[in-house]
């Protein structure tokens, strides 16, 4: 018997019953009971079944997402929505999220390496690769923070407002003169110390509902006069000076004047909720990794009879987070 009783005291998840000698050796003679059919320790099994149930939580969210998306006549085009890149770049479809995905894949790879070093009982190796994994996880969270910030503060997407949408018919954006020519009044008001210019139908009661703007993008380039086709994506510009969304006027081939409509609000709420829930998993993974890294550094696992199994268990969790991202990436960014 290699271990002493004092040793048990430091294993919290083991509880009080010391199953070790017949539980933790994989196929040695010490297992006097029946065959352990799954040849895995109970800890790993429990982690697997927890992950299975967590997969169903995510499945619930993603299936709900699918149902809502199917119920909408339009849906924002992902490569239009996710086309910003740090440094003020725009129109780079899916490049940033590809980088994010790489970061997560890398951190998964470093995690596998940490587990492998654990099998060799190489404490320094485990620490090195776990530290890299933590950096990877933190980097991913940082990317996500940047992405959320861009969407919320620059583009104006919130859980209740979605300025991204898709045109249901082709048309041309109108200039101020054209809108006035169609009988609208030009109105200029002070909001937040800046002048907002918009056009109103005479006698319209609900100003917020009825005002029209001239199309300009976030860089203040006026886009009036540009044409678009059916199913082309658009973004209702959020004016950072006046803090107003600027739904712009456009003319369809039959000559009628329309205004850009907001997209399905479920897009924003689902995006923030599901990526947020995933991000929460990444965050808790980073916290657990940190705790286990400290335990590794203290030499806690080195003398355990099941060695670095704790690293393996957190590894399973970490890969699961990566696995979920595969599907989040698929449904939010690719499809």
């Amino acid at each position: 018997m290699a271990h002493d009783t004092a040793h048990t005291d430091v294993i919290p998840e083991q509880g009080h019953l010391e199953h070790k000698d017949y539980m933790d050796s994989h196929d040695g003679p010490a297992w006097g009971g029946g065959k352990r059919p799954f040849k895995a320790s109970y800890g790993k099994l429990m982690m697997w079944y927890f992950l299975l149930s967590d997969a169903f939580t995510f499945a619930g969210f993603l299936i709900a997402y699918g149902a809502i998306r199917f119920s909408m006549p339009t849906w924002p085009v992902p490569d239009h929505v996710f086309s910003a890149f740090p440094g003020g770049f725009h129109g780079w479809p899916l490049i940033f999220v590809t980088v994010m995905t790489f970061v997560l894949i890398l951190s998964s790879v470093t995690m596998v390496r940490a587990v492998q070093e654990g099998h060799r009982r190489n404490k320094r190796g485990v620490m090195f690769w776990m530290a890299l994994t933590i950096i990877g996880g933190a980097a991913f969270l940082g990317c996500q923070a940047w992405e959320w910030n861009t969407m919320i503060n620059e583009e104006g997407v919130t859980v209740t407002k979605n300025p991204f949408s898709t045109h249901l018919q082709g048309g041309t954006y109108l200039t101020g003169a054209e809108i006035e020519g169609a009988g609208f009044e030009k109105v200029m008001t002070e909001t937040h110390g800046k002048t907002a210019t918009y056009y109103l139908e005479p006698g319209a009661e609900d100003i917020e509902e009825n005002r029209l703007f001239v199309k300009q993008n976030h860089q203040k380039e006026v886009l009036a006069g540009e044409s678009f086709k059916e199913e082309d994506p658009y973004l209702i510009t959020y004016n950072h000076d006046t803090h107003l969304y600027e739904p712009s006027a456009f003319k369809t081939p039959d000559g009628s004047i329309h205004k850009e409509a907001f997209g399905p609000i479920a897009f924003g709420s689902l995006f923030f909720f599901i990526t947020g829930f995933h991000g929460f998993h990444v965050f808790s993974g980073v916290v657990f990794l940190l705790i286990i890294l400290i335990n590794v550094a203290s030499g806690l696992y080195h003398n355990r009879s099941n060695n670095y199994e704790m690293v393996e268990k957190i590894g399973l969790y970490w890969h699961f987070v990566d696995l979920v991202w595969v599907f989040v990436f698929l449904v939010f960014y690719l499809l």
Binding site: F38, K39, S108, V112, H319, F320, D322, L323
Partner: peptide, 18 residues
């Protein structure tokens, strides 16, 4: 997903029942 589960999570090396 298959690759992550089977290689990274070592499912390939587990007992079939598991």
């Amino acid at each position: 997903a298959y690759f992550i589960v089977y290689e990274f999570m070592h499912m390939k090396y587990e007992v079939k029942g598991l």
